[in-house]
């Protein structure tokens, strides 16, 4: 029997992690966030910090070239004491790790193109969480303890990185709402209502409407 997979794609500052944790606590689903990075780092023989830096963003051309030369050269030999995998390698490994988790547990996966990974999964619910800029700036400046101006810069950069990442890895437009089952604006209806609504949808879809276990 297939396990339930909830994927949450979120704009930074919209409360995606809080929603994922709430779903995880409500249903006892496994929350896949940091664990994914740690597992992927282990498989890729690289540092977690290196993968953290690569999180949901694509490498520049210079970074791509440099990562190859970090292997070494034919004359000098191998320099590897660690691997510095490419974006595609990281994505592929994270995809496999996500699929492995989903084989063994009901999961809530946060970001990292998980909506795409499970697009054909029979028990998948994809959620896109958005919010107005003011709402996000407030959350981001509080979470990272930075000024509003810095928060705006961070938001713009993160949105750009995530959009490019999804486009490159999946070929899809991250902001195309047709990719998701539910799209919610947290700044419009508030976090509590958002959370309760998503929980209700999960109950309805997987536990009540003949689709449950």
């Amino acid at each position: 029997m297939e396990n339930i997979v909830i994927t949450i794609t979120r704009q930074i500052g919209s409360g995606g992690y809080d929603l994922a944790r709430a779903i995880s606590e409500e249903f006892g689903f496994k929350l896949i966030d940091r664990e994914l990075v740690v597992h992927a780092a282990k498989i890729l023989k690289t540092d977690v910090a290196y993968l953290d830096k690569k999180e949901e963003r694509t490498s520049s051309l210079l970074e791509k070239i440099l990562s190859v030369f970090s292997i070494g050269t034919p004359e000098i030999g191998s320099l590897a004491g660690s691997f510095y995998p490419t974006d595609a390698e990281i994505f592929d490994v994270q995809k496999t790790v996500l699929e492995n988790f989903a084989q063994n547990h009901d999961i809530v996966a946060l970001g990292r193109a998980s909506f795409f990974v499970f697009k054909d999964h029979p028990k998948h619910l994809s959620v896109f969480l958005k919010a107005g800029l003011d709402y996000r700036v407030k959350n981001v400046s509080k979470e990272f303890n930075i000024s509003d101006k810095e928060a705006i810069e961070l938001i713009n950069q993160t949105d750009k990185n995530r959009n490019e990442y999804i486009k490159k890895m999946t070929g899809l437009n991250r902001c195309d709402l047709r990719n998701y089952d539910i799209v919610l604006d947290v700044s419009c209806i508030g976090f509590e209502l958002t959370k309760n609504f998503v929980i209700d949808v999960i109950k309805h879809k997987f536990f009540k409407n003949g689709g449950g276990r």
């Binding site: 690289t46 540092d47 977690v48 910090a49 290196y50 953290d52 830096k53 970074e63 070239i65 440099l66 990562s67 190859v68 030369f69 970090s70 292997i71 070494g72 050269t73 004359e75 000098i76 320099l79 660690s82 510095y84």
Partner: peptide
């Protein structure tokens, strides 16, 4: 170099190593 920058550091280093030969 911090761990997250070590890939870049080794890449720069590797390019230097390529230059020699």
């Amino acid at each position: 170099f911090p761990k997250e920058e070590q890939g870049m550091a080794m890449g720069i280093y590797g390019m230097g190593v390529v230059m020699g030969p």
